[in-house]
Amino acid sequence: MESIKLEGTPKTPTVEFNSENGELLLKGRSIPENSIEFYKPLIDWIENYSANAGSDTILNVQLEYFNTSSSKCLLDVFKKLERISNPVTINWYYEEDDEDMLEAGEDYDAIIDIPFKMIEVEEI
């Protein structure tokens, strides 16, 4: 299956979904007006990937900003990952002092049945 590589824009994140090694990345900002349009292909990709996922899957979420419209789509992304039977880890990055981003990660951690690892960094 093909990997996904999308460059970030002022409103959408950089996406690197690697089907070979199971490393998935969302990095930058996610503030499009219509998030579904952007996330639908990504969610479909994970759906296909989950059928023959590697022994380990890691999603690195390195978002600087995301809007509430993206928050629903992110939840759908995590829900799709939840269905993978092999181990999945989500690394949730947040910039130091960015309590809002840390809390957002904790919210998902409480909802989703995948271990979230909170990683504080100086700059995303």
Binding site: E33, N67, S69, E95, D97, E99, D100
Partner: peptide, 22 residues
């Protein structure tokens, strides 16, 4: 101001503008 405040202003502004847009 601290990055924390700037981020809050930015985040809230985006949300307000997109509410208006919709």
């Amino acid at each position: 101001e601290s990055t924390k405040i700037k981020k809050k202003v930015f985040n809230i502004l985006v949300e307000c503008l997109q509410n208006l847009y919709h």
